[in-house]
Structure formats: structure tokens, C-alpha cells
Amino acid sequence: MNTSVSRLLTVIGASAAALAGWVLAVPVAGIALTVRMGGGMQQVGPAAVVVASLLAGLAGWALLAVLERFASRAGRPWTIVALAVLALSLLGPLGSAAGTTATLVLVLLHLIVGAVLVPGLARR
């Protein structure tokens, strides 16, 4: 399988894994994923999970493609940047989720996406 197809499948897989996590948490376990947005509260739905994870995956892939144009061994610097971005992304749920359970689930969804994207995109 060529690299582009593998990376595309990785991005789609990260999104599918996040959606599966959302399904287990929200419809199955009955957890309300609510975040503070502006002055109100908003539910985190499946579309938001899929779009956010796809955007993260595509952005990571784009950065990796740029690094590969300028460095012969882009995997290591990309992985460092990707892990730093993942760590920073955790500030979102930690600062805006409504309640401990919502915070834990949203952090877990971020980690699921990172666990698929980081090793999946970095490998050749």
C-alpha cells in the first residue's frame, strides 16, 4: 500500500475511533458531553467529533508532508510537534468541559485520536 493511501486510512481511522468513543460515551453510557461556548453551553455531537478529528488528521498530514520536503528524516521532528500539539489540545476540554465526566471523556477522545494519528502518520 502506498504512503498516501496509508495516511488517508490513518486519518479516517482516527476519526472512526473518536466516533466510536463518542458512541460508547454518549448514546451507550448516557454521558452528556457539554462544553462552555461563549456565554452558553453546547452539546458535543458526532459531527463535531468527526470534523475535529478529520481536521486534526489532515493538518498533521500536511505538516508531515512539508517537513518531508525539507528533511530526509522528518518522522522524529513531526512526532515531537504532534505530541506537543496533542498536549496543548488537552487544554480545550480541561478548560471548557462542563463537569468531571465530560472532561474525562473529551480528554479520552483527544488521546484516542492522538494514539491513532501519531504512530500512524509517522510510519512509512
Rank of each mutant, 00 (worst) to 15 (best):
residue 52 A to G: 14
residue 111 L to I: 04
residue 96 S to K: 07
residue 59 A to P: 03
residue 62 A to G: 12
residue 54 L to P: 05
residue 54 L to W: 13
residue 71 A to S: 05
residue 89 S to H: 10
residue 34 T to I: 09
residue 102 A to L: 08
residue 78 W to Y: 15
residue 40 G to L: 06
residue 73 R to L: 12
residue 95 G to M: 15
residue 38 G to V: 10
residue 34 T to M: 08
residue 94 L to S: 12
residue 108 L to Q: 06
residue 101 T to L: 14
residue 65 A to E: 06
residue 55 L to T: 11
residue 49 V to K: 00
residue 79 T to R: 13
residue 41 M to G: 14
residue 66 V to R: 07
residue 67 L to G: 02
residue 87 A to I: 08
residue 67 L to N: 00
residue 80 I to W: 06
residue 33 L to V: 04
residue 98 A to K: 04
residue 102 A to W: 01
residue 101 T to H: 10
residue 87 A to S: 09
residue 94 L to N: 12
residue 95 G to S: 15
residue 51 V to P: 05
residue 53 S to F: 07
residue 71 A to W: 01
residue 50 V to S: 07
residue 97 A to Y: 01
residue 63 L to T: 05
residue 101 T to D: 11
residue 86 L to W: 06
residue 84 A to V: 09
residue 95 G to P: 07
residue 49 V to A: 05
residue 43 Q to E: 14
residue 107 V to H: 06
residue 81 V to R: 02
residue 40 G to D: 08
residue 71 A to I: 05
residue 79 T to Q: 14
residue 59 A to S: 10
residue 43 Q to A: 14
residue 77 P to W: 05
residue 82 A to R: 00
residue 105 V to L: 11
residue 83 L to W: 06
residue 79 T to L: 10
residue 32 A to E: 11
residue 98 A to W: 01
residue 41 M to H: 14
residue 45 G to M: 04
residue 48 A to E: 06
residue 92 G to W: 09
residue 40 G to N: 12
residue 75 G to K: 08
residue 75 G to W: 11
residue 84 A to H: 07
residue 107 V to C: 11
residue 55 L to A: 15
residue 66 V to F: 05
residue 58 L to M: 15
residue 49 V to Y: 00
residue 79 T to E: 11
residue 37 M to D: 14
residue 38 G to Q: 12
residue 84 A to W: 04
residue 39 G to Q: 04
residue 57 G to E: 11
residue 92 G to E: 03
residue 32 A to L: 05
residue 76 R to P: 00
residue 54 L to E: 11
residue 86 L to C: 02
residue 90 L to C: 07
residue 73 R to W: 06
residue 35 V to K: 05
residue 80 I to P: 01
residue 82 A to T: 10
residue 97 A to Q: 00
residue 103 T to S: 10
residue 81 V to N: 00
residue 51 V to L: 15
residue 74 A to H: 03
residue 77 P to R: 04
residue 106 L to T: 08
residue 55 L to V: 14
residue 75 G to I: 06
residue 63 L to Q: 02
residue 92 G to Q: 09
residue 55 L to H: 10
residue 75 G to E: 13
residue 102 A to C: 06
residue 84 A to K: 00
residue 66 V to A: 08
residue 86 L to E: 02
residue 46 P to E: 12
residue 72 S to V: 06
residue 102 A to I: 07
residue 61 W to L: 15
residue 33 L to D: 01
residue 101 T to E: 13
residue 112 I to M: 01
